[in-house]
């Protein structure tokens, strides 16, 4: 466990020194700060627009950070040959991979926590109220996004064990977009009686096999509090377990491939 934690802490240090990530984070924070000024887009629904925009920024910026942070992680170590100095020590390849992944997750946690804190502050200022419950409710969004981003980072780490960073970037983004958009598409295919059974079947298989990022887009009931949600806790638990299981799958695949790879 110690080598894993050592690699993870080194990875966090590297991540927070990367200027490109800090710039993206800064842009995200700036967007959240200006969000209350977007009342122009609303009609009797400033709070809706504010919540929607801020949650959207956190999700979007976190996704960019997660991808950029992870696609270069393993290839850079190989390219700079720093991996030799690590693997020459009593460190297993799987420990290296898991340590790198945990470092990425911790870095994401730090950055998303910062954006969430700014969001809570701006929400307080815009609402001019001290309704802690409402802010806590809003925080459910970033919490679920965090699990989503951990899953995205796992996808990128898995791909980074066998493809080049540029290809990995497009692959990861592609999987993310399909994972986000496929659920609504699958739903509409399922609801449409005119859809051929074969197409429905294919959609079902793809929906079951690919990581389902749309599960974590829980913002709609948070933005529109009038929506009644049943068994919210059970759903959150379900998608967290789903995320952990899928992350495990991706890391195992990554370990299996990385173990066989010549470095």
């Amino acid at each position: 466990m110690r080598p894993i934690l050592a690699i993870a802490s080194t990875t966090v240090g590297e991540a927070i020194r990367r200027k490109v990530l800090l710039i993206i984070l800064l842009i995200g924070v700036l967007f959240i700060v200006v969000a209350p000024g977007l009342g122009i887009l609303s009609a009797r629904s400033e709070t809706t627009v504010l919540k929607s925009f801020m949650l959207g920024v956190i999700q979007g910026v976190s996704a960019i950070i997660a991808v950029i942070l992870t696609v270069y992680m393993i290839p850079n170590e190989i390219e700079r040959r720093t991996i030799y100095t690590i693997l020459s020590k009593p460190v297993q390849r799987w420990q290296f991979l898991v340590g790198k992944y945990l470092g990425a997750v911790l870095s994401l946690l730090l950055m998303m926590a910062m954006m969430s804190a700014v969001m809570a502050l701006m929400f307080f200022l815009q609402q001019q109220s001290k309704n802690v419950g409402e802010v806590a409710e809003l925080m459910k969004g970033p919490m679920m996004y965090f699990v989503q981003m951990c899953l995205l980072a796992a996808v990128a780490i898995c791909f980074s064990t066998f493809v080049a960073p540029l290809v990995n970037f497009f692959l990861t983004v592609g999987v993310f977009l399909v994972g986000v958009f496929f659920n609504p598409l699958f739903q509409s295919l399922q609801d449409n009686q005119n859809t051929a059974p074969f197409v429905k079947g294919v959609a079902k298989v793809v929906n079951t096999v690919l990581p389902n990022f749309a599960n974590y887009n829980v913002q709609n009931p948070l933005i529109n509090p009038t929506s009644a949600i049943q068994n919210e806790g059970r759903y959150y638990l379900g998608i967290t377990v789903y995320g952990v299981v899928y992350i495990g799958i991706l890391l195992i695949i990554g370990i299996l491939i990385f173990d066989r790879r010549e470095v």
Binding site: P184, Q187, S188, N215, N217, P221, Q230, R234, Y235
Partner: peptide, 9 residues
């Protein structure tokens, strides 16, 4: 549950 409560469509 996603279809019922969280589907934006």
């Amino acid at each position: 549950q996603w279809s019922r409560d969280y589907n934006p469509g």
